[in-house]
Design a binder for these strands. Structure first.
Lengths: 190, 190
DNA sequence: TTGGTCACATACGCTGTGTATGTGGTTAGG
DNA sequence: CCTAACCACATACACAGCGTATGTGACCAA
């Protein structure tokens, strides 16, 4: 069964190329060549360039959110949220993840489709935490949707900032973002 | 002197089309046809598709930031910042501005070039306000760069949220974002 | 009146996507 | 064990859209 291996190899090479050169600057020919197959193989496994990118993206999101959920072990919702935040910032320090999910994804898919996918992953996770924090009185119970968008978007800003930063700065920037977000959270207590 | 008029008409039609259909879905043929000229005219006035979009974008940014600066009349830095914020949110309620500057621009130009342009406009304005607020003790004086990015990004989130919202919800969402941002600012006092 | 320039139009080549069809190897059925 | 079907991929072609090179009429300028 060569099929699965080829598909996995295509996904892998596509992940690297999309992250390195960006979506537009990467042709399916490039991906095929890197995998040592032809474009025919790509179209056999994926409906098109967009579908290939979506597959790459979904895998990144899935892995990242799994890491986040795994980290949030505390029983206190606020502690759990902070653990999750911390885990996310760690993830965001990996340039491939940040670049693909926060830079390339909106570019490639258009904002509409991008947000649809996010609903199932990052955005959905933020949504659950915000809800929990409101229920337990750590956040004022109002404008829930907007509050979720607010924090979701902050995470994206942090992700992008970390994605673009030099390795030497990452630790410091990570901590600065962490501090800003927790402070901002504090400003929103009832 | 037809030249200036043609250029202005091209810019105008391009603004509409890029905002309505997005950058990728708008061909230069579309823009030329809408202006009732040929693609030749487009290439006479602009170096290419990207240059045309940049011209459209810069005009939007210029107008928006002019409106923001004009609104910030208070002598107290915090009051002025809040006036500026309020003016920005008003601007963001205009779908053409929000869509072009916050959705299409990163898509079209790539993140790198987009941020370069923003430095001169929105980001630059936020930077000055943050600096002022830190100098006058309204914001804790640390992580200035990250704090700027934080607020800049927050404004982007608000812009996008408002860009995508139904007209009926805009007023409410505008106020919710305003509230969240001022609260978040409060959490960052020394 | 003629040479030059400006403001476009026309024509062509190239890249990249998607699709339709071809092909070798493997497997299932008689 | 032979053949027919199918799977996994390759090849070939059509077409859109960008950019560029060249053509053209109008309008001066000497």
């Amino acid at each position: 069964m060569y099929s699965e291996a080829t598909r996995a190899a295509l996904l892998d090479e596509a992940t690297t190329l999309f992250a390195e050169r960006g979506y537009n600057a990467t042709s399916l020919e490039d991906v095929a060549a890197a995998t040592q197959v032809t474009r025919g193989a790509v179209y056999h496994h994926f409906a098109g360039k967009l579908a290939l990118f979506e597959a790459v993206l979904v895998e990144q999101e899935r892995a990242a959110m799994a890491a986040v959920e795994k980290a949030a072990t505390a029983s206190d919702p606020l502690d759990a949220a902070i653990q999750a935040l911390s885990a996310f910032l760690d993830k965001a320090c990996e340039p491939v993840y940040s670049k693909l999910c926060w830079q390339e994804a909106p570019t490639a898919l258009g904002h509409q489709r991008w947000k649809e996918i996010e609903e199932h992953y990052a955005y959905g996770v933020v949504e659950r935490f915000v809800e929990l924090l409101m229920e337990t009185g750590h956040l004022e119970r109002k404008a829930q949707e907007t509050t979720t968008q607010f924090f979701f978007w902050m995470l994206g800003g942090a992700g992008l900032a970390l994605a673009g930063a030099a390795d030497a700065d990452k630790r410091r920037l990570r901590d600065e973002w962490f501090d800003l977000m927790t402070r901002s959270l504090r400003g929103m207590r009832p």
